[in-house]
């Protein structure tokens, strides 16, 4: 079966003109010398020609007219690259990077480095870095506030775009 498949695959490539010149020579010889290959080639070639003979279907006579009537009231949308605002993309990126960085710094600040094994020494003594001013109530509140405002802003933009899409569809 798999041998048969390989034979068919090779013959289809040959018929489609996609075989390499070396492969083409080999298949030419096989078709010439081997009855099984010759029969299969004849069968596939006939199927190939039949597939080419299939015809395209035609839509109704008014098809083009209908489309032209529809688009008469439409305008071509500006190219996507012209309305994709890079500032928004950067805003989203900064939003997520700030959150990730914030959590990482906070997480690292919480680690008790002294409880680890004493086999390896980290060149920086993290326990001596004082992060408490960064995480006092005022800073955390400002950070969270900024995130909430940014989050609400992005959510609003998302809802507005959805609303516009719905209007367009309607």
């Amino acid at each position: 079966m798999s041998e048969q498949l390989t034979m068919e695959e090779r013959l289809w490539e040959y018929i489609d003109g996609m075989s390499t010149p070396e492969e083409k020579t080999v298949i030419d010889q096989l078709i010439e010398a081997n009855a099984e290959w010759r029969a299969k080639y004849g069968e596939l070639l006939e199927a190939h020609q039949l597939m080419f003979s299939s015809e395209l279907e035609e839509p109704s006579m008014r098809f083009t007219k209908n489309i032209m009537e529809e688009i008469a009231v439409l305008q071509i949308a500006p190219a996507a690259k012209s309305y994709i605002n890079k500032k928004i993309i950067w805003g989203i990126a900064i939003f997520f990077i700030t959150i990730i960085a914030g959590f990482l710094i906070y997480g690292i600040g919480q680690v008790k480095w002294s409880s680890g094994s004493d086999g390896t020494k980290i060149p920086v003594d993290f326990s001596k870095i004082d992060l408490s001013p960064m995480f006092n109530n005022t800073y955390i509140n400002i950070f969270m506030m900024l995130n909430v405002v940014l989050g609400l802003f992005l959510f609003d933009r998302y809802l507005a775009s959805k609303r516009r899409e719905r209007h367009k569809e309607a």
Binding site: E57, F63, I67, I76, A79, S82
Partner: peptide, 18 residues
């Protein structure tokens, strides 16, 4: 098929700048 085809050409027209 006719309805879908018309929709396709209208979409293509709207997005032609892309």
């Amino acid at each position: 098929a006719e309805e879908v085809s018309q929709d396709i050409f209208i979409k293509a027209y709207r997005a032609l700048a892309d």
